[in-house]
Design a protein around this nucleic acid. Structure first.
Lengths: 155, 155
DNA sequence: TCTGAAAGGGTTGATGG
DNA sequence: CCATCAACCCTTTCAGA
């Protein structure tokens, strides 16, 4: 994986902010003609710097306006338990994130649901599918101040 | 904001998975011709169902491979404190998320940094900028099993 | 690695079903 | 609310620097 020069970073910054920007416009903004600009983008995709392009949707419009974090501690961690968690959480669409974390709990899960009445069902979906949940703790988000996947690109 | 029919949902699902899909391909996949398909996309954008398109970048490639969550409790919550948190967190690029949450702490912050040695600097960036932090607790992510903003689109 | 030009394909808007 | 078609723009490829 080669180093990213200033132009690569400008390209990444622009595409991160507008993933559908035409290559001609992108080229103009970074000060290249279309051909080498497109070639750079293809290279960044090939090398895994750009991992995809995604439309961002409004949670409210899709009736998923409630955001909760759930911390989970398992009774016993093992390679099997670990794989089970990965596999199960991958296929619960309401679960947006799942991380193995340090501290008092083992996993931190982020999920979106429509309303409080679906919360019990979510917990069942999570807790019952996982191997031996010893303890859980939930944080309900009362206001979302910032939520992005955009990374700082500066050198 | 009108209701989303089956075709709208199919469009959302496809654009959420591939934000750069050409309108002709999208039209073919949903079973429309290009014109009405494009018009639907424009309407979904106009109505705020689609809020943007973004390239997703690799944290490793940008030297932000470490993920941490920080919980913060303020000494005193007030309208001013609330605005201050929103304003400050908006402009720390390493902070990807910041939510006002229920429970023992007031805020849950998600941030990406390059390595452990930058952690102290991040905490300073966060804690010193916020008004009267009474307590904080950090979770270090040891493995990321899932991380997405993609929402379930099913009716 | 870049520019520039040409060919192919996607997008857009008018028209009509 | 949809399909068709033509004009325009974008993308892609290739020759040349």
């Amino acid at each position: 994986m080669r180093d990213l020069d200033r132009m690569d970073r400008k390209i990444l910054e622009l595409l991160q902010a507008n993933g559908r920007m035409p290559m001609t416009e992108l080229a103009e903004k970074v000060g290249l003609s279309a051909t080498p600009c497109t070639e750079r983008v293809r290279r960044l995709e090939r090398e895994g710097v750009i991992t995809g392009y995604h439309a961002r949707l409004s949670p409210d419009a899709l009736d998923k306006s409630m955001l909760v974090f759930v911390e989970i501690r398992l009774a016993a961690m093992s390679a099997q338990a670990f794989e089970r968690v990965r596999h199960e959480m991958m296929f619960v669409p309401e679960v947006l994130e799942c991380h193995l974390v340090s501290g008092e709990f083992d996993y931190l899960i982020k999920a979106r649901i429509g309303q409080m009445s679906e919360y019990r069902q979510l917990l069942e979906n999570i807790l019952l599918k996982l191997p031996g949940v010893a303890q859980s703790r939930s944080l309900v988000v009362m206001e979302e101040l910032k939520e992005t996947l955009s990374l700082p690109v500066a050198p």
